[in-house]
Write a protein that binds this DNA or RNA. Sequence first.
DNA 1: CGTTGAACCTGTTTGC
DNA 2: TGCAAACAGGTTCAAC
Length: 287
Amino acid sequence: MPELPEVETVVRGLRSILPGRRIVSIRLGKTDFMDDPAILERNLPGQRIEGVERYGKFVLLRLASARKADGVPPGADQRYSLLVHLGMTGHLSPRPIAEPPRPHTHAFFTLDDGRELRYTDPRRFGRMALLRDDALGGVLGKLGLDPLEASLNDFRHCLTGRRAKIKALLLNQGVLRGLGNIYADESLWRASIHPARQAAALAPRQVALLFRSIRRVLSEAIRLGGSSISDFLDAGGLPGEFQLRHRAYGREGKPCFRCGAKIRRILVAGRSSHFCPRCQRAPRRKR
DNA sequence: CGTTGAACCTGTTTGC
DNA sequence: TGCAAACAGGTTCAAC
């Protein structure tokens, strides 16, 4: 569910509510998606949320100890960040404490304003970890470029010499951070590039077009609050609207908006890939 | 390097 | 109607 635009939408919603709030206490349900639940239980209560950031598909709650510095030597006061990945079905939403929790809610963080930040995730493909800032880099450093911050040259650079299929590369978080199956397909449709094309074989013109397509698709999706296919909701519980602008994803058998040919779905890089067989020409030699 | 398939888990949709 | 298979926005790991 959540790719860069959905995570950005959630982060913006959380950012209007969480900064300044203190986490009073926490309660955990199933914890098999957490790196170390004991660390959360021990260190999260008493922390104040200073900021909410997105890094690729990760949500970062930047924290600071709400206690007075009682003689702790300077430099030893490493701050914590709560790292949350929403996986396929994760939701993060501040709710009134009195509101009955949705099924599959596995983490409750009681705030000091009468609300509770809840993490709900039926499939538990998400991930949650409380990390000291000196350990953050180890996790986030493995990720590639932010597609909205990178330059065209950066983008070119990360495609050159890659023999992988372009779709596989777009999904690889170590290359670009934040694209997922929907936005990879949508970007490739807009650039008229077949998902199974070899990245290094793309003409410079196509690379530039793909880069522009990615940025436009992501920007517009953020503007519309992401894509809600079946269950994505922002932090306030509202769906996005970018699904209404999908041109390839989920449109198998329907006419291409450009040429009218029927959109096809094939497996590329192990994922369903939607494309127009007429606009997006297959590679000359197939795999 | 790159690809493939399986695994993780639950819910919903599709097909016979 | 009913039940089983297929499928789902993601990531990781083993095996080749």
